[in-house]
Amino acid sequence: MPGGRLTQQERQRIAAGLADGLAYAEIARRLERPTSTISREVTRNGGPGGYRPQLAHKATAQRARRGTTAHSHADRPSGGTAEDRIIELAVRSGMPRMMARVHVDLLLSEDGRRTAAELVRRLKVSPASVSVAVNSLVQYGYVRRERDPRRRRDIYVVDDEAWYHSMAISAQQTLESAQAAMAAAETLGPDSPVGQRLLRAGTFLERVIEDLKESADRWRTLLM
């Protein structure tokens, strides 16, 4: 399977596939690329109805030049680029900054793949910092780990399925909290003020998470 950045010829074939109404997965199969590479390429460059291969190729080159410049600065980003804004939103939602930087760097990579050494070099941080960040990302389902048998190293991958898996992991954790609250309500007495409060909270969370899981399963095909 080819790796690296998409060529202009591949982008022209993507445009032709979209014009023929092909799904991302079929275009990816024909190009021998991951489906996530195709969906990310199209999403970042106008969407299915506005994808133009020449403009996409030029925009990717410009992003690569900006990325090289941005990563040559200090550890904490100070500019107002799209990458910086995504990182700040992730940090505001509770994600540690280093974890957010690693995640965003993977998200914005051409094929969604980086080695630990590449992350260290691009982000100008220590191997230990990257190790902690990627281990957390793997634990929460945002990233998966692949093994390169030829060079005996790990490759960290983010693809479209990662959104489903991270949501499923988060939903399971919340469901366990809801079940713990309802169990505590039984122990304390469901008729007591505290028991009633815990029972209402647990029931609410359980119903919401069940709806969320059903919705994620129903729409999972959009990621394929």
Score class of each variant (00 low, 15 high):
T37C: 06
R197M: 10
L123P: 05
R207I: 08
D111M: 08
R52D: 14
G49Y: 02
P127Y: 03
A117L: 12
S170W: 08
Q9W: 07
R101D: 04
G189N: 01
S72F: 10
H73W: 09
M1P: 13
V194S: 08
V102D: 02
A19V: 05
E118W: 03
I86P: 00
T60L: 12
A19T: 09
V130W: 05
R153I: 11
E41H: 07
Q173Y: 07
E146R: 06
Y51C: 02
E88G: 03
H103P: 02
I38A: 00
M182P: 01
R66S: 07
R122I: 13
Q54T: 10
L175N: 03
R197C: 02
Q172L: 10
H165P: 00
R150H: 10
N45A: 05
V125E: 01
V125C: 04
V120N: 08
D191E: 11
R33T: 04
G94Q: 01
G47F: 02
R30F: 02
R66L: 13
S170P: 00
R65Q: 15
G50F: 03
A100M: 06
P77D: 10
V42L: 07
E206R: 15
A216T: 02
H57W: 15
R145S: 11
T37P: 01
Q9L: 09
L106C: 02
V134P: 00
E210R: 14
G49C: 01
D211K: 09
G112D: 01
S131T: 15
V157T: 09
R152F: 08
Y51S: 00
S39Q: 10
L188T: 06
Y140D: 13
R30N: 11
E26N: 04
Q179R: 15
E110K: 08
R152V: 09
L175Q: 13
V132E: 07
T43N: 14
R207D: 10
P190G: 04
A185L: 04
L22H: 10
P193S: 00
L6Q: 08
A184K: 13
E110L: 06
G94K: 02
L22Q: 14
R151S: 05
R101A: 02
R197E: 11
Y142S: 13
R218K: 13
E32L: 09
R65H: 10
Y140K: 11
A59I: 00
P53H: 05
M167F: 09
Q172C: 06
D105K: 10
V91D: 05
L107T: 14
